[in-house]
Design a protein around this nucleic acid. Structure first.
Lengths: 140, 140
DNA sequence: AATTTATTACGAAAATTTTCGTAGAAAATA
DNA sequence: TATTTTCTACGAAAATTTTCGTAATAAATT
């Protein structure tokens, strides 16, 4: 079997972009939250926060489709897009990166910062406490 | 008489504190960690992780200077740069943004995700526990 | 049927971020 | 002193991300 080895640093061939851009992430949020949606709907939602041209949103979603971040149902006239990657997995990936670049990998610092400067309900604090208990068990 | 006023320096200082780009953040990390540093040092540090041209790093740091993210001492031949923005303040700003775009503002989800999928030392867990106790006190 | 509206596809402009080459000067070295 | 190395300044190329204009077509409306 002969295999073609691409030595160049830029193998743009099939390397799938693994990280959504910020704009793409905004759209993914909406798809995760509302389920399968049309471009029209997504654009309306985005427009609540910032002025966004329809074709801009369309183009973004088409690109996301190419990248494999979303699937779409082309049966009807207006295509229906849905997220093709899981929310929690994506969050984890982004968190890992964020943790590294912003907190030098210290989850502790991030957590302290996240909890320290924010109002967190009693119930939420308890949930975290429970999590800590579980982790304490595993750590040994 | 109408006169064109050159206020480039002032404007650079007054422009709204934008958020650092990812590359800029990497450099800020190093400055926060090691204190005032030369371009050479920063570039050497960066090169440990990824191939980085010297002038690339230089240019980035010059841009950061224009943006007001760093100050520099031009006394010697090689300028000495130091961070002009605080680490914790920057982290908070970035965290707020990240929290919104990735976790829809839920600090709880972020914390759970951050602690759940990671090995955290006993000591760190205790620190968080202490923080929780303090917060519990305040919450009432 | 004719017209208006809504949608996709597509290319390219615009904007932003990153990388690099070159020139000139200062310093170090041979 | 002559040469090499090291540094800054600066412009611009390259790469990435975001925005938008236009054409084609299907659907809806008049």
């Amino acid at each position: 079997m002969i295999r073609k080895i691409n030595c160049s640093r830029n193998m743009a061939e099939k390397t799938p972009p693994n990280k959504p851009t910020e704009s793409e992430l905004e759209i993914l949020q909406l798809l995760w939250e509302h389920g399968p949606s049309t471009v029209r709907f997504v654009n309306d939602e985005l427009s609540k926060n910032k002025e966004t041209g329809y074709t801009t949103t369309l183009k973004l979603m088409q690109i996301m489709h190419e990248k494999g971040f979303v699937e779409r149902d082309e049966a009807g006239r207006s295509h229906v897009y849905k997220a093709a990657i899981e929310e929690s997995a994506t969050q984890k990936q982004l968190l890992d990166r964020f943790l590294e670049t912003t907190f030098r990998g210290s989850a502790l610092k991030l957590v302290m910062q996240a909890l320290g400067n924010r109002k967190t309900s009693e119930q939420e604090l308890n949930e975290i406490r429970n999590l800590l208990d579980k982790l304490k068990g595993n750590a040994k």
